[in-house]
Design a protein around this nucleic acid. Structure first.
Length: 476
DNA sequence: ATGTGC
């Protein structure tokens, strides 16, 4: 991105003042290196987002931002229904409620390092991964509706995991306001055999070692200590979320004229929050959030069983579960007035600061754990929400490393087998059904997660707490 | 992201 187009507001804050149809400025949080390397399409896309009706404060891009469908991935935008604010399926993303959960194992590296391959084999056997992967849990129509309403709570009621986990999931495991009636037969059919599956692309299950602590008191609160072993699951709402996204994008594109919304880009298709279509999408999207929460809960159960085989008696405990593709109703003070806003986070993680009433007791004092996945074979990070983050980007932070090149480009440049061998030399075990998928996920096809997280920290979006390194990676 | 692509 051309740095000359931006006004520098601070070391990690860049502004594009409103011009032409923009209703608000656009703001990018990143350091100079990340800005220079950032896809120029992010500039185009956030300035387009800034033209949408009812947008509040600014259109934001996180340090890992890259080109996406309509909205950039790594984008945040808040809309006020009182000002004609809109909801956009492209502002949430195709993989609705894609997210990350990290589980404590209570193990330390010395117990794992003697034979990590055994755990890798058990996990790879237990976790269905890859394009079109299917699970053993098949939902009948009644159970499908119950799942779409109940989320992780439904999963726990069916015996997948522990009730104590619920406190450690956004929305306490169950997204209110889901409307399963808005989830089409086709979306349900696609999901029928996909509960408890990882999917493909950048989705993974990783066994990780805590290697660095940046802030000991908060790390203690989060239960993280050097050489501790955690397991992180990154996945979303599979075929169901994708189908909902596809259907509503189409419907919103067709309805734009009816709602008299001028779109600088067709891909920004949206509907007023207070319209029948807007309400229907919200109901369907919330059902998809429950699908993702239930999916990660079932995967946790499968992970527990695999861990049990290798380490009998070890009980996984959830640190936290965050989503990074959502639209949520949240309250913020704007120009001195308390407002109810619809916060779109697409490839952006909610990052509530200390004292937020929606946080579980365990974290209320320190702030929300913000789980940031790295690219395959590289570090992941745990951050913590900040109080001032509420005035930066509506309590949002980055979501990962962010792609630096396209899948196609990456597949041309690397060979899956060579990457697996190279990572093995670094002591990282990769298990995947797809060597092409591995090539597409080559570490160098992504930005440096350390730089992204460093910029998020400097910008005050969230503070660095710990760094994790992969030991075993089950890749979709 | 995705029964990968109109």
């Amino acid at each position: 991105m051309n740095i000359g187009q931006l006004i520098r507001r601070g070391e990690t804050c860049w502004e594009i003042p409103p011009t032409a149809a923009m209703r608000v400025p656009a703001v990018i949080y990143a350091d100079e290196g990340l800005i220079r390397a950032m896809d120029p399409k992010v500039y185009e896309q956030i300035t387009n987002v800034a033209t949408l009706p009812g947008i509040v404060e600014a259109a934001y891009a996180m340090p890992d931002a890259h080109w996406g469908y309509g909205f950039p991935i790594g984008g945040v935008a808040a809309f006020d229904p009182d000002q004609g604010g809109v909801i956009s399926a492209g502002g949430v993303g195709f993989d609705i409620s894609c997210g990350v959960r990290t589980l404590h194992t209570g193990l330390t590296m010395d117990r794992l390092e003697s034979d990590p391959h055994r755990l890798a084999d058990e996990l790879y056997r237990a976790i269905p991964a890859g394009v079109g992967s299917r699970g053993k849990i098949h939902l009948n129509p009644h159970e499908m509706t119950a799942m779409l309403t109940g989320g992780a709570r439904w999963a726990i009621d069916r015996g997948f995991g522990e009730a104590a986990d619920l406190e450690r999931i956004e929305e306490r495991g169950c997204m209110a306001g889901a409307d399963p009636a808005q989830v089409s037969a086709r979306a349900r059919e696609r999901q029928r055999e996909e509960m408890g599956t990882l999917g493909s692309g950048n989705h993974y299950l990783e066994v990780q070692r805590v290697v660095e602590i940046y802030h000991r008191p908060v790390a203690e609160k989060f239960g993280l200590r050097t050489d501790g072993i955690v397991i992180t699951i990154h996945c979303g709402s599979r075929g169901l979320g994708h189908q909902i996204g596809t259907e509503f994008l189409k419907e919103m594109a067709m309805a734009a004229a009816q709602y008299k919304i001028a779109l600088p880009d067709r891909e920004l298709a949206c509907a007023p929050i207070r319209s029948p279509l807007g309400r229907r999408y919200l109901g369907a999207m919330r059902a998809a959030i429950n699908c993702a929460l239930a999916n990660r809960q079932i995967l946790t159960h499968l992970t527990q069983k695999a861990v049990d085989t290798v380490f009998p008696g070890v009980r996984l405990e959830l640190l936290y579960d965050v989503s990074h593709n959502t639209c949520k109703v949240e309250h913020y003070t704007v120009n001195g007035r308390k407002k109810e806003l619809y916060i779109h986070r697409k490839g952006a993680t909610r990052a509530y600061g200390p004292g937020h009433p929606d946080l579980p007791e365990a974290f209320r004092e320190v702030g929300q754990p913000v789980l940031i996945g790295g690219s395959m074979g590289t570090s992941s990070y745990v951050l913590c929400g900040t109080e001032k983050g509420a005035n930066r980007a509506f309590s949002s932070a980055c979501h990962g490393a962010g792609r630096a090149m396209s899948r196609h480009q990456a597949a041309k440049q690397w060979r899956g087998r060579e990457l697996v061998d190279e990572l093995a030399r670094q002591g990282i075990i990769i298990r995947s059904p797809s060597l092409r998928g591995i090539a597409e996920e080559a570490p160098l096809a992504y930005k440096d997660a350390g730089a992204v997280v460093g910029a998020a920290d400097k910008a005050g979006l969230a503070h660095k707490i710990a760094r994790l390194e992969p030991v075993i990676c089950i890749k979709g």
